[in-house]
Design a protein around this nucleic acid. Structure first.
Lengths: 193, 193
DNA sequence: GTCTATAGGTTGATAGAC
DNA sequence: GTCTATCAACCTATAGAC
């Protein structure tokens, strides 16, 4: 077994979970270490630049998992409306199971850090951009025009991030369900602008 | 002059500004007091329950200002597409002037506090709900059906909050501009679901 | 009522033993 | 390489002088 990167991975996994749950500022390094079981020395061995460098690794991990989840949902159906609906339904189910963020949104971390750390801001921006492009690619494959696919990808990403925020705040998945319900209208093929 | 509530109002105004800019956890009470010019004793005189009670007042202030801004934009045109476009254009202009949140979104504060404080979570949820209903009322007045108005109000609120998050993170108003561009399609009158 | 000084606890980070 | 003991700085909250 490779115990070499094991400590590192456990720290990043714990950080990724806690940053999403409580936010960047509210999550202490001690808490991350307690959760991961690793001692403090290991953290500064693997991440000499401290909290910011660890958060960067956590964002990358969260981002990759999010992308995999969305891609899996999109691949479940060839019809783009059904495919995106599946992605949102999965989020609703996950949110109902436990009312917490679990690899669904980087919004809190992005908003917290975008004014204070360019490194983290850019990492979050890349993640948002990637998610938009994943939605756009699905639309492009389904016959939407190049320009309209790109625009709708951004709109979908905005709408879903916003609906997650509203649903978490209300402790009620209704905003996500409403977006789900209005999805067919937004993605109509006819009379594209 | 009524100096009675003057200190209180200055504290709430400073808190409202800093909470939106840096977030709830990252903003210290000392910083708020420094910004407002009031001493620490006054804070605990007006807000015996400390930071949470102050944040509640700050959310109420921010929420009221946001509602006034959106209502002003919506009243600028009788056509709902033009009216909502005006609201979003104003946000784009404000974001271009200085790339910071200024009475535009409670998303960061809502995400930060929704897992730890029911009081603040509910205050943010009420604000989101109110904003959705303001958009819905405009659509209702423009002849949309009652049910469709309510649903589109939620979708608009989600989409705009999400696009603000994306624009701030990317330091680029393009996501908001894209939403603006796709707005006419979302709000088409024909063939309502 | 208004304000200051300080308590008590936590944070991110470091130095150095093994 | 891995870990522990400890630092200085910061936080929220309080007690009590004016």
């Amino acid at each position: 077994m490779n115990s070499k990167t094991d400590s590192r991975e456990k720290i990043v996994a714990a950080a990724s979970k806690l940053f999403q749950l409580k936010g960047y500022t509210a999550t202490g390094l001690n808490e991350i270490l307690r959760e991961s079981g690793a001692p403090k020395g290991s953290l500064y061995y693997y991440f000499p630049n401290g909290k910011e460098e660890l958060a960067l690794a956590a964002v990358d991990l969260t981002s990759k998992t999010m992308q995999a989840n969305v891609l899996a949902g999109l691949n479940s159906d060839s019809d783009p409306v059904c495919a995106v609906s599946k992605v949102i339904s999965d989020m609703i189910t996950a949110l109902k199971d436990d009312g917490r963020l679990q690899t669904m949104s980087l919004s809190m971390l992005a908003l917290e850090t975008c004014q204070t750390s360019d490194t983290l801001r850019e990492a979050c921006a890349r993640s948002f951009e990637k998610m938009s492009s994943i939605y756009a690619q699905k639309l492009l494959d389904s016959g939407f025009s190049c320009e309209r696919s790109a625009e709708l990808g951004t709109v979908l990403q905005s709408m879903i991030e916003g609906a997650i925020t509203l649903s978490l705040t209300a402790r009620d998945v209704k905003p996500l369900e409403t977006v789900l319900h209005q999805l067919p209208l937004l993605l109509r093929r006819d009379s594209g602008v």
